[in-house]
Design a protein around this nucleic acid. Sequence first.
DNA 1: CGCATTCGTCAAACCGGTTAGATGCACGAC
DNA 2: GTCGTGCATCTAACCGGTTTGACGAATGCG
Lengths: 337, 337
Amino acid sequence: MSRTTIADVAREAGVTKATVSHAMSGKRPISDDTRAKVLAAAERLNWVPSQSARSLATQTANAIAVVLARDPEVIANDSFFPAFIAGVESVLAETETALILQVVPDRAAEERAYRALSHGRADGALLLDLRTDDWRVPLLEELGLPAVLVGAYEQPTRFSCVRTDDAEPVREIIAHLRAQGHERIAHVSGPLEYVHSRVRADAYTDAVGTDALLREGDFTAASGRARTAELLALADRPTAVLYSNDTMAIAGLSYARSNGLSIPRDLAIAGFDDDHLSAHLSPALTSVSSGPAARGRAAARLLQADILGAEPRTEVVNCNVVHFRESTSTSTESTNR
Amino acid sequence: MSRTTIADVAREAGVTKATVSHAMSGKRPISDDTRAKVLAAAERLNWVPSQSARSLATQTANAIAVVLARDPEVIANDSFFPAFIAGVESVLAETETALILQVVPDRAAEERAYRALSHGRADGALLLDLRTDDWRVPLLEELGLPAVLVGAYEQPTRFSCVRTDDAEPVREIIAHLRAQGHERIAHVSGPLEYVHSRVRADAYTDAVGTDALLREGDFTAASGRARTAELLALADRPTAVLYSNDTMAIAGLSYARSNGLSIPRDLAIAGFDDDHLSAHLSPALTSVSSGPAARGRAAARLLQADILGAEPRTEVVNCNVVHFRESTSTSTESTNR
DNA sequence: CGCATTCGTCAAACCGGTTAGATGCACGAC
DNA sequence: GTCGTGCATCTAACCGGTTTGACGAATGCG
């Protein structure tokens, strides 16, 4: 099963490897008829240059990477992720760049993964789920691996960022709930080590004036259910809950219902990230669409620019739109969609 | 930014490159204290072997690939895909194998992608969305690239398969609808070039005895809406529709409703692939869970086995479970979950 | 007509690993 | 003391591209 190599093409075309290489890349002038011979030979033999040989020689990989330290279960139930990836791919497809997706169990493996990536496996990385003082940022700086930070990041950095303003939609939702007479508004956040969870939680605390009804979840349905149970068991139970993603919101909604509460009459519920089905739930779920596909596209573009040597820059992709739906409205009418 | 190479480690440890290589791989006996010196040096220098150099030398990539010819939009709204990937990753994570995800716009690009993959970029591929007489199967056989076929495939092949029986749940749903008195049952399929779409459509046609109410969709919400509109415009409009995925089902449901139909009273609706939110819709959507994560795990395991030289085999992962919910029940009660 | 210049191609080194074959050394058997 | 034997290590070739310096031929110019 010997694959055809550049040497085969060279022999077939009656030239040397170097000429084939130059004919393909155009980095040296090649006469038109030689180039034609080379192209014909390559075509005839179905030659595709070996990616590993090329990346060894050029130190580029034609691929970018996303390393995730999340539990696979969270990935499966997350609405942000697939849409984000779809956005990334829509940009990468244009240049036939591959996306390397690696899920790692722990920090040691994650660090190894980045080191391996920087050794010719990937030309750059997208960093998701940023933590405050994220250790990955200095690591990638040290490795010299281009990267784009997706989400808020507060430290100064040489990397490009794709930001969104996560605080604003939280304020909007709280204001909306307040306007409807809600006074005890709770928040089930994501893990607070994540910057975006923290930003949302802080915006929440600022808006309601206390963190008494703030509970930390982990984006899973199980945690949504558990935190909701805790909140509803309080003597002064909340009349509205804002969750940091739709999966937790729906788990909370189910739990509240199974305990005899009517949504939104007894408990108003809002989510985050606007799963594509959330508009069709019963009641339709108020949620914040964060434009995951647009963010994916922006991140991929910035990364490609960075790899080509462009100056890093921060792009604010503010696609955040709050969709107010039945789950937070006192009237029966919904603003479906 | 010169990365540390095996030569640096060799110098640091006072041995040659070959010794370092053997010490790491264990392919030749190395004395204990030499090995210790090498490991210490590698640790000290934070050495990670270059993946491209290694894969050039060994013709292995430590990565497997999934190439998708779908529109990014379909990926974003598909419930099968993220869960499947999560299942795959949960297996790959154990061996620090990377997943290469490549979305291609057309067939030429897809073929190039597979050829490039077989040149040291990936050790194997998972084939999704199989078509009847899929051209990719002979191509990968020719390239000698190990692969696992996910879904039904009828031709004989040397590749392992992960099968599910897509016909059985269709029969179950039709029987269920029949038992409720439905006589005009329609089906909105996926593109019929896909084997799984075809199998479902055939099972449907067999069960109802005609394909008069069969319409071909493409898994997008837009097509679900359009095909539903066509069906409802018929003189003898159907009283029940089975869709080949949940996205189309929900689009159809919304359309029917906005035309004044009540679900399930005027129109019963069932989906496929059981999105994680489908149980929470209004009405809760009857759907078929195909165990995407389990299938992903099985596919990844079979591929890893194949790469290591195991005999190809077909594994039937029959996780298909029909969840009958409100959208197909005449009574108000639901079997939620 | 001779020389400089440009153009197109070639030969060889290099990227960073792996691996087959050669070599040196210690040890045991005779 | 000599010779085989086996173990540990080294040397060097190789994987398949890219890239640089060299070189021969064609061209331009005085």
